[in-house]
Amino acid sequence: MSQKLNTQPVERLKRISPEEFIKCYVKPQKPLIIEQLIDDWPAKDKWTFDYFKSIAGDLEVPLYDSKPITSKYKYNEPQAKMKLRDYIDILQTQPTDLRIFLFNLIKERPILQDHIKVPKLGLSLLKSLPFLFIGGQDSKVFMHYDIDLANILHIHLQGQKQCLIFPPSETKYLYKVANSLKTNDGIDFTDPDFETYPALAYAKGYTANLSPGETLYMPEGYWHHMHYKTAGFSISLRALARQPKHLGKAVYNITVMRYYENLMRKWKGDQWLQHKQKASIENTHKSLNLKAS
């Protein structure tokens, strides 16, 4: 029997009060799936791929794939662009690793704003930033955490999606790449190689299998890896980090780390990225006194 990641299912509740949510999940920074949080959203039934085609099919959208980042492409730069209708046609007919990532479709089509409601959970959610995520069957989003270390409500609306998440405390086991928000490119978190990456065996995280209408709460700075089991889409609502150390790190990420990284890529190119990939393994094993087989 092959070795697997050490994860447990994320706790599930049908509904929760704001007081209980803050006390039991936000303050202790525990993830949660809320099954019926958006039952009163028009988007739950109205939003489909065909509906998106009808209201925004002519919109050109940025697309991302699963290839490792190079010095040519920055972390948040798309690899291609396509009319939304053409992209959806691909999604509905064949597997693809092309994804829409962090796209504000509501800004482009404001009528969609009427289809969502800000959940009352005791968080100051930013309704103006409801980012859209779309993925094809079997597409994957590499393991990463968000630059602003926000509290995130990841609201799944179509298809089946599996989310692997790890708290910040497990970073030392995940082969983090320096000056970045991601882990080593060689790791396939759906089928990890424990011989090459033995530290993964010590990481303790969670698995969340999401169906349409379910909401995953991811606390501040949580690592997350998304696997679209079928073509589908989600949106996320976010609230600023509440913990001072996370706010400080978010400011550093945005004002220092990002610009330093762009400078080094411009100066040393792919040599810099390759050095960091190798160092992520060496430094992890050295700090934990481990050796790859």
Rank of each mutant, 00 (worst) to 15 (best):
N262D: 08
F133Q: 07
P78M: 06
H224N: 09
A241G: 11
I90F: 05
E261I: 07
F194P: 06
R109I: 15
Y87E: 03
E214H: 09
R242L: 13
Q92P: 03
K266P: 05
V61E: 00
K182G: 05
A292L: 10
V26H: 05
M218F: 02
Y197N: 02
Q158D: 12
A231L: 05
L210V: 05
A178I: 02
S17M: 03
Q113T: 11
N6H: 13
G136R: 10
R99N: 10
H246I: 02
Y222M: 06
L174N: 05
L13Q: 10
I55T: 07
R15I: 06
L126N: 09
Y75Q: 14
T255C: 12
M82F: 01
K268I: 01
N104W: 01
D89I: 05
L63H: 02
K268E: 06
K4I: 08
E19M: 08
R238I: 01
M226R: 02
I111Y: 07
F194Q: 05
N104P: 05
V256Y: 01
Q92W: 01
R258M: 10
P119F: 00
L91S: 03
D97S: 15
D148I: 12
I34L: 04
S54P: 04
K176W: 06
E261F: 11
A201V: 03
S2K: 11
I34C: 00
H115P: 04
L263V: 11
A150M: 12
W41I: 00
K120G: 07
K117C: 02
H227T: 05
S66L: 08
E35A: 13
T190N: 15
I111H: 08
K286S: 15
L153N: 02
A199F: 07
Y145E: 04
K30R: 14
S71L: 11
Q29N: 15
P130Q: 04
Y217M: 07
S139M: 11
T215R: 02
I16L: 03
A250K: 04
L210C: 12
N179Y: 08
L174Y: 06
T96S: 14
V10Q: 07
S71F: 13
K229L: 13
F133E: 02
E108A: 15
Y175E: 02
Y206N: 11
D146G: 14
S66Y: 04
T190S: 15
E11R: 12
A241E: 00
K74W: 13
D185K: 13
K140M: 07
N283R: 07
S287T: 14
K46H: 11
G57A: 08
N104E: 10
K266L: 13
I152C: 07
I187K: 13
I155F: 00
N104I: 07
D193Y: 10
I155N: 04
R15P: 01
A279R: 06
N289M: 12
L13Y: 01
T183Y: 04
L216F: 01
S211Q: 14
L174S: 05
S17F: 00
G186P: 06
